[in-house]
């Protein structure tokens, strides 16, 4: 029985190695270029927003804030029209990483789970994708804050 287990493990390992060899892979370079273009365009758009807002008399800080809000709004609207997923299919990480990707990951479950009700649908499931980012984002900022406090305290002595 024990020998059988070892044989099976060995078989599985060999098979997984073999699968890795035969499985087609997307071109990493092509994906990087596409992501660069997509991400770059989103950032350019953000820059345009900032310029327009500042042109209209906003301070740089206010303009940055309004730009974030504008990009999120735009992403949510594009998600609602099912256009955002098409952008990500082509642009990959280029549209996943910016704040627009985060907005998409919150809006998509909201649309999908609306049918299951306001509480158990949207309420419980809206953060199924973004939840880990929020949880560990807050945890990390808490740890960073703690370290910052300790460093300050150390420097003060």
């Amino acid at each position: 029985m024990k020998e059988e287990n070892i044989n099976e493990q060995q078989r599985n390992r060999q098979y997984n190695e073999y699968v890795k060899q035969v499985a087609p892979k997307a071109s990493c370079l092509a994906n990087c270029v596409k992501a660069f273009i997509t991400g770059g365009l989103i950032c350019t758009l953000g820059q345009i927003f900032i310029a327009v807002y500042m042109e209209n008399g906003m301070s740089k800080e206010d303009a940055a804030l309004w730009t974030t809000l504008s990009l999120v709004l735009l992403s949510v609207i594009l998600t609602g029209f099912n256009i955002y997923p098409l952008i990500t299919t082509w642009g990959g990480a280029g549209s996943l990483v910016p704040i627009t990707g985060f907005a998409n990951s919150v809006a998509a479950p909201a649309i999908e789970y609306k049918k299951e009700g306001q509480v158990f649908g949207i309420g419980c499931k809206i953060f199924t994708i973004a939840g880990p980012v929020i949880l560990y984002g807050i945890l990390t900022s808490w740890v960073a804050g703690l370290l910052y406090m300790l460093v300050q305290w150390g420097a003060g002595r």
């Binding site: 997307a26 998600t79 099912n82 299919t89 996943l96 990707g101 990951s105 998509a108 479950p109």
Partner: peptide, 17 residues
């Protein structure tokens, strides 16, 4: 997709396999 992966409107890339 909803049962096994992501909500439909969530953007992601599908691997070649």
């Amino acid at each position: 997709e909803k049962q096994f992966r992501f909500p439909l409107e969530y953007g992601n890339q599908r691997p070649e396999t």
